[in-house]
Write a protein that binds this DNA or RNA. Structure first.
Lengths: 130, 130
DNA sequence: ACACTGTATTAATACTCTTAATACAGTTAT
DNA sequence: ATAACTGTATTAAGAGTATTAATACAGTGT
């Protein structure tokens, strides 16, 4: 379910956070679904439970999971998550355009890139079917 | 000339590399200009000369500066740099479009963002006047 | 000779990430 | 109640990296 990349410079717990958020976003982990337990996920990934614990603590802090003591951790109702993600996208996208301008890329070129890339990407991924 | 951000998680030497590359890109540091000496830049930034040395070694490895022993370090003829930067941009931009598709953003929306952001950014920055 | 350049080395310190070994409290099923 | 799960907390150790510090050496220019 999750594959770690040890060549990645970022710490493992961050990768775990990212992957789990992605699974929530994709709907593989649905609202109120139980998260894998700290120990079992640690076993799965062959890493220390403390490292998973750290990732879970951060996910809880972000409001993406909630904890019921003794029972486990569960996926939150995460409307906020998709909003956050979209907000981040918008910021990054406008930064990209600033960079494009610095690089002397014209708006026509940008439009063309959007067009080409969009078609190509949709063809591969299947794109935004909700 | 350079301001370090100690809240940034990345190491100082990486920030120094980034800032110096930016100054070259902007033309503040022109081809064959002398770079500030290791010791003087270290003084300026109130950090250890070794840290600057590390940044310079990396800049040389990337071909952005060249060294004349006993004289100093100088800005390379860096056509490659702008090409590299453009290449990086293209990769990132297509990644962004993939993300947009995941977020269910239509190509029309993307085109509109490009349009709005481009005009706004050019107005502020003055944009790609070379 | 002196004051600059870059470069190299070694040591010490600090910080972060990760693992390991426990321990404790709450839940659930038997 | 006991066993087997949950999450949480703590403490210690190890590894790796970033940074500083103190030198030393070689080349350049005045």
């Amino acid at each position: 379910m999750i594959i770690l990349d040890y060549k990645d410079r970022r710490p493992i717990y961050e990768q775990v956070i990212e992957k789990l958020e992605e699974l929530m976003f994709l709907g593989v982990l649905k609202e109120h679904d139980p998260m894998p337990s700290v120990r079992s996920l640690a076993m799965d990934l062959s890493i220390n439970p403390n490292t998973i614990q750290r990732a879970y603590a951060e996910l809880e802090r972000r409001g993406y999971i909630y904890v019921v003591k003794g029972k486990g951790s569960f996926v939150s109702e995460n409307r906020t998550m998709k909003e956050n993600r979209k907000r981040e996208f918008l910021v990054q996208f406008s930064d990209m355009i600033d960079e494009a301008i610095r690089l002397g890329i014209s708006d026509q070129e940008l439009h063309q890139m959007v067009e080409v890339q969009y078609k190509a990407a949709v063809k591969i991924t299947g794109g935004g079917e909700t």
